[in-house]
């Protein structure tokens, strides 16, 4: 296999906006040599049934993520703050519009 084979095509993550008013959602990934081809391939692979009005493609290598191993420590600060949810508070009987 030569150096220009698929194996050198970078991986792209594909995000599709289903319709106006919604945010782009991750739908999957694909290989493509450049952004333009990634967009064309994404159209053919992920929107054959008008699933979208807009596509983003992002080089997979450019995305940073939190690690699952550090899940607990990383998200721990939010764990002891249930008062951030309105349901934390007791509302006396009969109170309306609160």
């Amino acid at each position: 296999m030569t150096s220009t084979e698929l194996r050198d095509w970078p991986l792209w993550e594909v995000f599709v906006r289903a319709r106006r008013g919604l945010s782009h959602q991750h739908v999957g990934s694909l290989h493509a040599p450049d952004a333009e081809m990634a967009l064309r391939n994404a159209r053919d692979v992920y929107t054959r049934r008008q699933e979208g009005v807009s596509i983003w493609v992002v080089p997979t290598a450019q995305i940073a993520t939190s690690s699952p191993d550090e899940k607990d420590a990383f998200f721990e600060p939010a764990g002891d703050k249930p008062y951030r949810h309105p349901t934390f508070f007791h509302v006396p009987e009969g109170v309306q519009h609160l």
């Binding site: 991986l11 993550e13 990934s29 997979t60 290598a61 995305i63 940073a64 993520t65 939190s66 690690s67 699952p68 550090e70 990383f74």
Partner: peptide, 10 residues
């Protein structure tokens, strides 16, 4: 702490 995206980092 940072790595490749969830779907990709083996």
């Amino acid at each position: 702490m940072y790595g490749l995206p969830e779907e990709r980092n083996r």
